[in-house]
Design a protein around this nucleic acid. Structure first.
Lengths: 226, 226
DNA sequence: AGCCCGCGTTTGTGATCACAAATTCGGCGT
DNA sequence: ACGCCGAATTTGTGATCACAAACGCGGGCT
């Protein structure tokens, strides 16, 4: 008989070091949500997740519980699991939170000139431009998230970062719909201004660029929502 | 034999309507953390929680997983469960988040004169004054949390509210230590200014009062931390 | 034809168990 | 007396099962 633990080893062999099963399930689902691969309103089942990832219900349940706690998924009172479909008011709250929190993270990241980071961001921004030009909405979402993640990582503020990531998870499914509907043609690239500010070590200018970037996202969302 | 579900009924009879077991475990633990009844650094075990609340490990596990997701508890890589003991830098981040988010919630709550709410808050504030005078630190924490909760509820912004509550959960264990150490004698009551602003429907003044209130909490925390 | 009731199926929940890793603590050696 | 190593215990993890509630579909009534 294959024991629980040998099963676990088989699944994780070559995937990662020694993650618990519920952790890899969590990461898989989280990435799918963050990349907009889960349509808002979609229903999930524990048995479905478990079967698809070849695990038992237990780790699937734990991963889902965790995502529900982060509001990346939601559960109805009867226990059905679905991808949230936030209404306009809730999206407004979430973007308000981003507008409040992200400039502060940028400010903390940009206190000193940081050429290495500026270069890394420029590389990501080049890929973003490609996605913009080719109209690759999923790619744009993914790379845009990367840009912000890498920048904020430099702030060394994990508690603030965690709050922001929770907000991203909540907006991600809708943004997929937004960019899918409106396209990515009309977008202004505020990232260049951010990179310049970072090169100069001008934290305030960096915070402003990030503010404008997020505000643009909100504006788009509002257009698509109406 | 007592089936799983009859056991569940017995436990929940008279406690609440029809909450799943993991939900009541969650609420019990959450309240204990928020009220500062869990000393920072304290270790918990699933079997201990389960036994104390007369449930099996499964709902205990789910409740803990959820609280870990909210960063109200933390788990070491080896899986040990403990009450977080945030360092000064992390506490600074958390108060920064409060300073950014809570004035906005206050602003949204204070857009129009709201005598009924002002009266409810005045009642809570009276109890806070009692706790201040008698040096009842746990009572002060509990009622202060109530004050903010009731006020922000009026903002009708559940997504922002959830972010703030997550931050409270993370700071609560340390605040218990702070007020225990410093006492509550020197505290200024910014709540009266908040109540006046709410009576007048002056959202900006309300936001300012809340800002000052949170800033005072941060100042105290910094004093106690050094 | 449209609506509703009822039954089969799906689904989340809770309990229990085996297992391995981590922790703890007593005893040995220096 | 102090530190270290080993075994016993503790602890989280994952799998599995029974159960009741929710869901959904099909047939019958109006």
């Amino acid at each position: 008989m294959i024991t629980n633990y040998s099963m676990r080893s088989i699944l994780q062999a070559g995937i990662d070091e020694a993650l618990p099963t519920h952790e890899s399930v969590y990461r898989t689902l989280r990435r799918a949500i963050l990349h907009g691969e889960m349509p808002p309103g979609n229903a999930l089942t524990l048995r479905g997740i478990a079967e698809q990832l070849s695990v038992s219900m237990t780790p699937a349940r734990e991963a889902v519980r965790r995502l529900v706690a982060e509001r990346a998924l939601e559960m109805t009172p009867s226990g059905r699991i679905l991808v949230p479909e936030p209404d306009a008011a809730r999206l407004d709250e979430l973007f308000q939170a981003r507008l409040l929190l992200e400039p502060e993270l940028a400010r903390r990241a940009g206190g000193a000139a940081n050429p290495a980071l500026a270069q890394a961001l420029a590389a990501i921004d080049a890929r973003i431009d490609d996605s913009l030009k080719s109209g690759d909405a999923p790619g744009y979402i993914r790379e845009n998230t990367d840009f912000h993640t890498v920048l904020y990582q430099a702030a060394g503020a994990p508690a603030l970062m965690a709050l922001v990531e929770s907000v991203w998870l909540q907006t991600a499914p809708m943004m997929r719909r937004v960019y899918g509907r409106l396209g990515t043609q009309g977008l202004v690239d505020y990232h260049e201004a951010a990179i310049e500010a970072l090169t100069a070590g001008d934290a305030e200018a960096l915070a402003r660029a990030i503010h404008d970037d997020v505000a643009q996202g909100r504006r788009l969302m509002q257009q698509a929502g109406g």
